[in-house]
Structure formats: C-alpha cells, structure tokens
Design a protein around this nucleic acid. Structure first.
Lengths: 154, 154
DNA sequence: ATAAATAATTGTGGAAATCAATAATTAAAA
DNA sequence: TTTTAATTATTGATTTCCACAATTATTTAT
C-alpha cells in the first residue's frame, strides 16, 4: 500500500470552490474571526460583543432609548431588555424616564460603566488590530468606508 | 407643553459614536444584512446559509470529510452531523466511507443536490448583488480581496 | 372620545452554540 | 509489537440565542 502523505494545511483546498471566494462568505468568515477575537478579549470584563455594544452606545451623550438600541443593533426589543437588565444589575447603566415620552426609557451609562468601557475598548481595539493585522492603516480606512456603504444602505 | 418634533430618521445619530465607525462593528452589521438577505432568498429551497454552505462544499469534487467541513465552516463537529443528516435525509448528499481512513466519512453531493445548489446559488447571488448594490464591480472585487486577507490569515 | 399605534416587558418554543462522553480507528511511543 | 495517545463521528445535556405572541402603559390619530 502506497502511503498518501497527510496534509498539514488541512482545509486549504476548500477555499477554492464556489463558496470560498464568495463575497458574502468571506464577509461571514471575516466577521466570525473578528467576533471571536473580540469575545475572547472581552471575557476578562464579563462582557460579550452584545453587551459591549450596548455599553458603547450608552456611555456617550446620545441617551438612546431601548427601542433605538434595538433598531440600531438589529435586535428584538426583548433582547435589549435582557442586556440592559444585566448592565443595570452590575451598576454599569441606568434606566431613566424619557421626559418627553413616559412609555420610553432612556439608557445612560454610569461612571462605573464609562470606566469599564474605557478599558474594555482598549482591549477590543488591540484584538481588532490583531485580526486586521494583514491590512495597512490606509487599507483599513478604505475597508471601513466600503463596509459603511453596505452597513448603512440608502 | 411644547412639542418636540419626532425624528423620521431614528437611529442616525447613534452611527456617530465610538461604535458606529468601528471596523469590527461595520463588519458585523454588513454581515448581518448579508446573512438575512441570503436566508430570505434560501427559504424558498428550505435552506439556510448553514446548509447552503455545506451543500456548496460537497457538490464540488473536493469530497471533504465532516471534520474538514467543521474546520472550514468553524462549526462544532456535532453541528456538522446534524447538517449532513438533514441533507442526507433529503437526498441531497451522501456519506461515503473514506478509503484511506475508516474513521472518516466523505460527503458528496447527489445529482439532486447539485441541481438544487445550482438554482439556490442563482438566488443567493441575486440577493447578494442587492446587498452590495452600493458598490461597483471593481469595488466588490477589491472588497473580496481585502476580506480574503482577513478571512484566511497567515 | 375613541381607536390605533408604540415602548417596554414577560413568557415561550425552537434553533443554535458549547461541552462531555463514547466507540471505532489510526498514529505515536515504548 | 504492544501499548498508549490522538482523532473521527456520533449522542446527549446544558446553555444561550432568537423570533413571536401577548400585556400594560402611554401616546398619536381619527
């Protein structure tokens, strides 16, 4: 029996089918790598990309309502309830009544929330830089511009 | 009571915080739009991006093992079992013994699988074109090149 | 004044991710 | 060669995630 040498680069050959070069698939795979790197970096702070994203949106001075968070993050409103519950329980954000609409609640980050976000942000940016290390600063800029046109259509 | 005019572009202002311009976030958002467009297009064939991806990989002549599918798609091997179970039940793919390793099973698309993939592919490509309609052909090409460097590091 | 729409919330069922354990087989080490 | 370790597919359990329906309070439209 002649021995077939075992491949050391296992799935290389799968890259060159209909799928491996597909733009949507590349997008999905790049995103998967990015998300898991970010989650790894955020684990130290008991955050995931979801809760980190909410935190990022509420530590500024935009004071979004839960509905706005849901819409922007493409989440079901009920998921936002759970995410805000968690942040609030941990003292990182607060629900405030919306002065102009008593149905709505405005979410604002606390001081602790802002502080945690600051350090978590450094960690995610380090991780992100790692993921995109194959690209130059200029290429990253161009990529962001291009993705922005897809991410925010119209 | 003075009335505050309701905004017609609701979350526009959230785009311009720390998050909205973040490369990883843009990647995630662009991908989310792409995935949901693809899933919508694939629903007509009782496929999702997951099962479509597996189908795409097995209708070629690479004859991947389940382990290779799992690795390439970044899935747990047990999820691949379920996906292949489904395709096999529907007569779209078959498990064949790997001649050189009797632990492994090689997955090959059936004729029906190839036919379904062909039409499903047209549908997803239409949907994809829609999602990326803000980009020219040249820009799509450049985007694919850039994403490829992130998606397949080293 | 009444009706319709909206914001947050709860609960629910199904999909999916994660993890441990197992049987069969192969590869590595002694 | 014999034993040991690693690998492949599989099952099952656990948890998390996601999409929906229903509910309450409030606001907007008729």
């Amino acid at each position: 029996m002649t021995e077939t040498p075992k491949q050391t680069v296992p799935v290389e050959r799968l890259r060159h089918g209909d799928l491996g070069d597909d733009l949507s698939f590349l997008l999905a795979r790049a995103n998967a790598l990015s998300v898991s790197a970010a989650n790894t970096a955020l684990a130290a702070f008991d955050l995931k990309v979801r809760s980190y994203s909410v935190l990022a949106l509420v530590v500024g001075d935009e004071r979004p309502s839960q509905r706005e968070l849901a819409e922007f993050l493409r989440l079901d409103p009920s998921q936002v309830v759970a995410l805000v519950d968690d942040l609030e329980r941990r003292g990182l954000a607060t629900r405030l009544p919306d002065e102009s609409d008593r149905r709505a609640k405005v979410i604002v980050g606390t001081t602790a929330g802002r502080e945690l976000f600051a350090v978590a942000r450094r960690a995610t940016q380090r991780a992100e830089l790692e993921v995109h290390s194959a690209l130059s600063a200029k290429e990253r800029e161009l990529l962001a511009d291009t993705l922005r046109r897809i991410a925010y259509p119209r």
